[in-house]
Design a protein around this nucleic acid. Structure first.
Lengths: 276, 276
DNA sequence: GTTTGTGAAGGGATTCACAGCC
DNA sequence: GGCTGTGAATCCCTTCACAAAC
């Protein structure tokens, strides 16, 4: 087969290590961290302009920073400026942008508008992605009221809940439908992204219905690991995990402070840290 | 386990590349993706029991799965079971667990309770981490009402907002204080984690006040890149970025489908673009 | 002079595959 | 027989450093 990138070419089913037929992959749902970009079930021979997953995430950040700059009237930026505003280093930024093509001018920098356009195109933001929100509790409300989600392009076009008192009630201008109608409504309205904001116990069943409704991407706020068929992409936002990661860093820091106890070094150690 | 682990022996301070003295690093704030775990300003000679950042995130997931299993009465698990429930592969799981030490029994598996205990210890969940939530809008409400956050260990002990109508009003049993009081209150109550759920424009200023209040970890829901001193750890949860990553995958998938010609596939909305 | 774009080098994380132990 | 623990290999991402372009 083709050159080096094809480590995955057998991807379809070939060497996936004896997989119990029920289990839908288990390799997905990558901790909201780093799913390999070539990971989905697509044909490998497509000339992947393979842009690393990590870079994709950063492009979205650059886009926001650039939009803000455009609003303030900047017309060009250097990699140095942009990178520091985005919180990365300039080499990384340049490499990321290079995946889009060559849109900079040496000795000068990048034209803000050109970059915005190219990033939008690459991220697929020139299409519309209709969103459904499931679970209209506190979080669901918050999401529904974003009303058209972050900078247009992601219109919320369906809301679902199981609570009879909520059915039919408009939230953010859109009436709430019942969970049972998820497949039908999603199909009818051509929903492409489903957002799960239900309690954990309901999440898997909601997910299944979304998938039945043809939804291909799911953003999961419920603290459960969803099982999905392999053509469905899941990202998860997990509060508990985030807090526990922070906790880990606090702990490590405390340990380090202890270890460095005698050593006088320029480290700001608040002596008030809670001694367990 | 003996000295064997020493592949990092050359790791001394030797090659720390000349860093331009002014630059405040810019290396931090890593897209909520993968900050290197040894990256913070600590001394390199601390005997790091270096556990990879990516593994830390997964440990939190294993912990949740294990807790559920314990509740259901399981007393032991194999790496195969646990890994598939957690959505990773078993080799990765075993490697992750090996960072904790050797707590499995060959030919048998792991004892659920032992694992829970070890993960909790490693993640620093044996201490309490007091949380402050800033910005009591829809999202802030949702967070405050979690009431004691994911499985105890993260009690919410302070709420802040700028809206005069909210000050003093109890939310989830805790009265809301004013933004101006952030530094004082955080210091008094020994808050260790600050959660920013404000509109983007307010986020940086809120962040500064949290830092002034001695908060060392920040979980940022506002769509801005925060600038913080290097001893402060930031994680961010960015809805727009998540959606745009999903958008990218939809787009790529559509491209692939096109390329693969035949093109009988799910719906991928019209090319209704939004110019400028 | 400045700044981009990119091969090449370097590090981390994942996967493989098997030795070691039950 | 089964399952864990882990070196070694691999892959991916980041960083370096410099040639090319303005």
């Amino acid at each position: 087969m083709v050159a080096q990138r094809g480590r995955r070419n057998g991807a379809g089913a070939a060497h996936k290590r004896t997989r119990p037929p029920g289990t839908p992959d288990a390799d997905n749902a990558p901790t909201a961290e780093m799913p390999a970009v070539g990971e989905n079930g697509a044909d490998p021979e497509v000339r992947a302009r393979a842009i690393p997953e990590a870079a994709v995430a950063r492009l979205a950040v650059y886009l926001r920073v650039l939009s803000a700059m455009a609003e303030q009237g900047s017309t060009t930026v250097s990699s140095e400026e942009l990178s520091s505003a985005a919180g990365v280093n300039s080499a990384k930024l340049r490499k990321d942008l290079s995946y889009l093509g060559s849109y900079g001018t040496r000795g000068v920098g990048y034209e803000v508008e050109v970059l915005v356009g190219q990033i939008e195109r690459t991220l697929g933001l020139t299409r519309q992605h209709k969103v459904a929100v499931v679970g209209i509790g506190n979080l669901g409300h918050a999401l529904a009221n974003y009303g058209g989600f972050p900078g247009r392009g992601f219109p919320v076009e369906a809301l679902f809940d199981i609570d009879p008192d909520l059915i039919g009630v408009p939230v953010g201008g859109l009436p709430v439908s019942h969970l049972d109608d998820i497949p039908r409504v999603c199909t009818e309205r051509q929903i492409s992204i489903g957002v799960i904001a239900t309690p954990p116990a309901a999440a898997q069943s909601v997910c299944d219905r979304l998938v039945a409704g043809g939804v291909q991407c799911i953003l999961n706020f419920a603290p459960v690991v969803l099982q999905v068929p392999e053509h469905v992409e899941v990202r998860k936002v997990d509060l508990a995990v985030e807090l526990q990661i922070l906790s880990f860093h606090v702990a490590r820091r405390a340990d380090n402070a202890e270890a460095a106890a005698g050593g006088v070094n320029g480290h700001v150690v608040d002596p008030a840290v809670m001694p367990s």
